[in-house]
């Protein structure tokens, strides 16, 4: 019996300690780690990128103790719902479809989507121009939805687990073109050695029906306290210059958008 009391006492003490540590609230951040320049894993195995720096800055502003969890993209919302982590900072666009499952903070950036293909080919971005083409896209993305809804009847959609794999098949010629976020393509592909023979085609796409209202941090539905703290933190890093510093580290233009 005494043993039981001891256990209860210890449990209470631990519980109280956890309560006292409220100031450094532990928040686990889910991210993908395969979407340069926003989030990727460097040669030494560290998470790096714009999303990662934003997440760290937001955590510092909100006085959270943050820990990163890496999760494949197509399982990133199920992972959040299964409480593997508490927030997703992984360039997730705020779309009506996703809003049915998760809640979002305010946006922290907003950039358009674009098609990419090998330089010097005659490629018209239209239903006729894309007829019969194989288009590479990352699975479970707004870009896949946009592609299937608008050109799904005329193109073959090859969907990949990561954006990096989509690039690999563009380079090998298995896919004729790809569609993704323009900044991701610019820095993650066109600016690299393997992407040097490629260029953008067609206009910017940013129709909110598919592309939503920019990129936000996703939290579980009803987790309003966390969401509001994150919103306040985003507002703080926007106003105190931290955001600009991170923006300048990765891009020579403003990714926050209008």
């Amino acid at each position: 019996m005494r043993k039981l009391y001891t256990i209860i006492a210890v449990a209470l003490a631990v519980g109280l300690a956890a309560g006292a540590a409220e100031a450094g609230q532990k928040v686990r951040i889910g991210t993908e780690g395969a979407y340069p320049p926003f989030n990727s894993i460097d040669k030494d195995g560290n998470l790096v990128g714009f999303d990662v720096d934003i997440a760290k800055a937001v955590c510092a502003a909100a006085e959270f103790e943050c820990e990163f969890v890496v999760q494949d993209w197509d399982g990133i919302i199920p992972g959040l719902l299964a409480k593997k982590y508490d927030a997703v900072v992984a360039s997730m666009s705020i779309t009506p479809e996703r809003k049915q499952r998760v809640d979002f903070t305010d946006k922290y950036y907003n950039t358009p989507a674009k098609f990419v293909a090998r330089k010097g080919i005659d490629l018209q971005i239209s239903v006729d121009g894309l007829k019969g083409k194989v288009i590479a896209v990352q699975r479970a993305t707004i870009h896949e939805n946009f592609l299937r809804d608008n050109y799904g009847d005329v193109v073959t959609v090859n969907s990949y687990a990561t954006q990096d794999e989509a690039y690999l098949d563009l380079v090998s010629g298995r896919a004729d073109a790809g569609i993704a976020d323009s900044v991701a393509i610019m820095d993650g592909f066109l600016g690299t050695d393997q992407g040097k023979d490629f260029q953008f085609y067609g206009p910017d796409f940013n129709d909110p029906k598919w592309f939503g209202d920019g990129v936000g941090i996703a939290v579980r539905k009803g987790d309003d306290e966390l969401r509001e703290k994150l919103n306040a933190a985003i507002a703080q890093i926007r106003s105190d210059g931290t955001y600009e510093k991170i923006n300048a580290k990765y891009f020579d233009f403003d990714v926050y958008g209008k």
């Binding site: 197509d74 919302i77 199920p78 479809e97 049915q100 499952r101 699975r139 479970a140 896949e144 939805n145 969907s159």
Partner: peptide, 11 residues
């Protein structure tokens, strides 16, 4: 199954 689940969230 993955493609449909990703779109509908009906995993």
């Amino acid at each position: 199954a993955r493609v449909i689940a990703a779109r509908s969230f009906a995993f």
